[in-house]
Design a protein around this nucleic acid. Sequence first.
RNA 1: GGCCCUAUCGUCUAACGGUUAGGACGGAGCCUUCUCAAGGCUUAAAUCAGGGUUCGAUUCCCUGUAGGGUCACCA
Length: 488
Amino acid sequence: MNTELKKVVTRFAPSPTGFLHIGGVRTALFAYLYARKMGGTFILRIEDTDKQREVEGSIQHIMDSLRWLNIEWDYGPDKPGSFGSCIQSERLDSYQKYAKQLIDKGLAYPDPYTKEEVEKFRQDAEAQKKPFLFRNYRPETFDVWDGTRPLRLKVPEVKRYVWQDAVRGQLEAGEEMLDDIILIKSDGYPTYNFAHIIDDLEMGVTHIMRADEFIASQPKFLSIYDALEIPYPVFVSLPPILRDDRTKKLGKRDGAKDILDYKVEGFLPEAMFNFLALIGWNPGTEQELFTKEELIQAFDLERIQKSGGAFNEEKLKWLNKEHLNLLSTSEYEKLVRAAIPKAVTESPSFDENRLGKLIPVIRERTHIMSDVTTAFEAGEYSFVFTDPDVSLDTLRFKKDPEVASAAPRLQHLTELLTNADFSSPESIKAAVWDYASMEGRGEVLWPMRVALTGLERSPDPFTVAYIIGQTDTLRRLQTVYDKIGHVI
RNA sequence: GGCCCUAUCGUCUAACGGUUAGGACGGAGCCUUCUCAAGGCUUAAAUCAGGGUUCGAUUCCCUGUAGGGUCACCA
């Protein structure tokens, strides 16, 4: 094991087969946090060695996703290093070079069989209820590799491997996992098994963070390190993120969402960053709300969880609200404005001044930004810009359901508010409070609020009056008063 | 099926042999209150099972059970 002090280098190495979901991003996040914590380097490497599965535009999408979360890379598909490109399809020479080394050592050979023949071997083994191992069919003598056939590893030594994992501690697995695996496919591209080891070597990667599904393959990887006679990096196996119901690992097939969907829904990247860090890792304290810098400070390998954890969107919403609270007024305003439907801001009745007064009210009632959009679309704030059409029925206060009795109260309110100070919700409250307390607050404030908003559920009447201003307040009170009189 | 891994409230988790098993989300209740939110307080809720080791096990060991992962010219 390599004990010399080296600069930490981690990497996130997705394949460009579509979008990134929670699980992938969490892996990236841990690798990123550790690199930053240790003052090291974080590399974004694209593993595009499977041409069939590659999805157009994925690389851009992956970069967009990480950028949204402010996970910045030191080297990536857009930033090659001294080691060359961070895109595997542009590194084929490297794989060839190391493949040749293995061939020269007699540790790699071309697969002499056709796909069909290998498949037949596999079926035969299965029929005998024995695991299929290619090495049992290894040819006596190796042909010269012309690059058109798969190149296989000749397992250097069939043995039981014991290794250290930063999360799981000592692990071991037996020879049944070791086989003459394919290093380079017949199309000339390397397999993951081979390519990631070469790249990690050339890029100086010191810590491999990856999902624990790779633990089972570890002996295979180790046999390649051994064949190459290169040192092992530190292995850090991350626990899986489970589906909400905990039945299985979260995956694209089970409806795992594109991480950027959360952006569309109005989650803050800071909240997502914070939340993801807390699935499979904890600081050992009771702190849950973290900024990015705090997480970098607090993060460590020792406290990474062994068992899988479910992604709980309710808690993410709560955390989002907490991060929303951390925002400055101007930052928050910017977000709100973006979330308000165009139909509202472009309507002739839209009033910039009123919106400014409304924003603090919205802030109190919002967990994620889509709440804002939804609320506007549902008409929850339409009273701000246009007079409501008040249904007399909603005027009924439960303790005094007589609609007619609202009339004198509205009239009295009008008198009080005609000379009131409208400079703040508090001053409006002061103007009517004594009267409301005497008459019955519900009996007075309910009709006042309904007259101003037309809604049974809304912000308090003082705030509403403050937002819409004195002129509109008085007019709306009068309108409803007249309407009652008309009915009576 | 072979091999490997995991196991504390519904969920995320704390407790590196000794705690009334702690916190958070969500739930319930209360307070505040004209309504809805927001906020505050209170509360219910867990060590998978059985054996060991030990004066003492959530913690260490074994077995079982359950769940997960993996056995590709996919990563």
